[in-house]
Amino acid sequence: MALNTPQITPTKKITVRAIGEELPRGDYQRCPQCDMLFSLPEINSHQSAYCPRCQAKIRDGRDWSLTRLAAMAFTMLLLMPFAWGEPLLHIWLLGIRIDANVMQGIWQMTKQGDAITGSMVFFCVIGAPLILVTSIAYLWFGNRLGMNLRPVLLMLERLKEWVMLDIYLVGIGVASIKVQDYAHIQAGVGLFSFVALVILTTVTLSHLNVEELWERFYPQRPATRRDEKLRVCLGCHFTGYPDQRGRCPRCHIPLRLRRRHSLQKCWAALLASIVLLLPANLLPISIIYLNGGRQEDTILSGIMSLASSNIAVAGIVFIASILVPFTKVIVMFTLLLSIHFKCQQGLRTRILLLRMVTWIGRWSMLDLFVISLTMSLINRDQILAFTMGPAAFYFGAAVILTILAVEWLDSRLLWDAHESGNARFDD
């Protein structure tokens, strides 16, 4: 018995066209964080690309023209004298008006014999932002004059995390709450300039795509075929072959399989920071003279006294001054041990922890910024005066060393310790 099946006739004509040209192939790229070699397709503007294995951002879609970056830099340069030299806060102490600005706080630190601690604050609040705007201006002028731009481009990517104007702005709020127990506070004209400078700096850093600047100024022929001998440069993120001198053909720094002496430098910085954190938390970090009496505060006791007036601000200072430094030390110690013992479990967790400490590390400088600003506000000789204690130097040095330890660690070593050939990683 035959089955009668109805015929289905399409209502619209289906047209099949042959592909007349070869589909576009992607360029081969190595991930600078996990060293995976993959094919990167062509990316349009405002599109980002991520590593298929570790999800690290390979290409950032946010990109401004150099002219727009230069305009932002010149605007920031105009704001800087007002943000640093004009009063941020006014207080009335014992019937006398006192003005506080950024430069005055750094000068008070240096004047009291601790120039190293003052230079830490100076670099993060004044030096690094000033280098940022002058570097962008150098790129703008240098591109037109045919100057060598490689050193500036190499420095810009590392400079971003040292620009800490946003953290200093939080420190202004913390210092205001600490001082309000002794005097009446009012915002100064410099505060508005400083807030504007923070906003412009944040926007500029978020749109400063150094890798795209490398592509514009020093374009290189990408690798179009897969080759395990391809290496990625950690300076400019170019994937290719080393030249005859073993250097990256684009930025001219040595092109090595792994960062040289990464573990040794990381261990040295980490152990030194552990040693410095002990006096930083045991010795007094601030000293207040009130009517001839002397009151010393460690980091913890200062947080407890701050909690009596504002528990939320005390929580912020606790996280930045105690929780973050010790968390960074514990995480980095764990990561280094996992590399030495070739741990194969929990790779995803370790990668996330490394990215976390990379982002939060700079916030530990908050305590030094609060001390710097408070020193310029309260300084009335023996009637009422505020000065920093010996722990300030140890704390600042420990924070900087932990930042350097994270920067010096080559994250690809975590993958080397893991089993080879993993296309995915999980716990």
Rank of each mutant, 00 (worst) to 15 (best):
I116F: 03
A187P: 10
L282H: 08
S305Q: 06
S308C: 05
A312Y: 13
A100L: 02
I172Y: 03
V331R: 01
A115H: 05
D181Y: 04
V174A: 15
W408Q: 03
F425H: 14
A392S: 07
H207E: 11
M109T: 07
I253P: 01
I8P: 15
I19L: 10
R412H: 01
I378N: 00
L208D: 14
D35V: 02
P24M: 07
F395G: 01
L282C: 09
W64Y: 11
C54K: 00
L132D: 02
R97N: 14
L278T: 06
R247E: 15
Q344R: 10
R158S: 14
D27M: 14
V370H: 00
P87Y: 08
R226N: 09
S411R: 13
G26F: 10
V317S: 00
R355D: 10
C233D: 01
G95E: 01
W162S: 01
V189L: 15
R231H: 03
A73K: 08
A2F: 05
T327Q: 06
E211K: 15
Q344M: 13
P242K: 07
F318M: 05
V125Y: 13
L156W: 14
M76E: 04
L169M: 13
R424F: 13
I400F: 05
T358G: 11
I167M: 02
V198I: 12
L347N: 15
I285R: 00
I274N: 05
A128N: 00
R250Y: 02
L257P: 12
W408T: 07
L156M: 07
I167K: 10
M76K: 08
F318C: 09
D426T: 11
F74K: 04
W359I: 15
M80K: 05
I167V: 11
L234K: 08
P151N: 02
E296M: 07
F122V: 15
S372I: 05
P390W: 05
H184N: 08
L88S: 03
F425I: 15
I58P: 01
W84A: 12
V133F: 03
D243P: 04
H46G: 11
P10Q: 09
G389C: 01
Q104R: 04
R380T: 02
G389T: 00
P254C: 04
L23W: 11
T201E: 06
I177K: 05
L139I: 09
V370F: 14
W359V: 12
W64N: 07
W92H: 06
V357T: 11
P254H: 02
L413S: 07
L347D: 13
L377Q: 01
G190Q: 02
E419M: 15
M365I: 09
W140Q: 13
H340Y: 08
G302R: 00
D181P: 01
L191W: 04
D381N: 06
L154E: 02
F425P: 11
M388L: 05
F38R: 03
L37F: 12
N422P: 12
F369S: 03
G142E: 00
I106C: 02
